[in-house]
């Protein structure tokens, strides 16, 4: 399976990464190389095999309910690109 330029554009939009037309062409070629590598997976019969999503076959450990975090807004917002009145600012959101 290989992908075309249009699909590269669609994936880049989903991933929110701007891609120029020249980059897209080059990326398309490289991605098809990688897809050629992972294509080998199709050759295996995995009927009846349960997918393995985790490296451990154990159940999730849960946390007791309780507030353990204190206000650290100042230190967290010290590294923020833009804040005002305790809020993170972004270009206008239109719903």
């Amino acid at each position: 399976m290989s992908i075309n330029l249009e699909q590269v554009g669609r994936i880049a939009r989903l991933a929110h990464i701007e891609i120029s037309p020249t980059e897209a062409a080059q990326t398309n070629q490289l991605l098809n190389g990688i897809l050629g590598l992972i294509e080998q997976l199709q050759s295996v019969d995995t009927t009846g095999i349960a997918p393995m999503a985790h490296a451990q076959d154990v159940a999730q450990r849960l946390r007791e309910d309780g507030v353990t975090e204190k206000d650290q807004r100042e230190s967290f917002q010290a590294v923020a690109p833009e804040t005002e009145a305790g809020l993170y600012l972004v270009p206008r959101v239109i719903e």
């Binding site: 992972i38 997976l41 199709q42 295996v44």
Partner: peptide, 12 residues
């Protein structure tokens, strides 16, 4: 075809 199949191969 890709992700789920890879997870199954991971089990193998």
């Amino acid at each position: 075809a890709y992700y789920l199949q890879a997870q199954k191969v991971r089990r193998l």
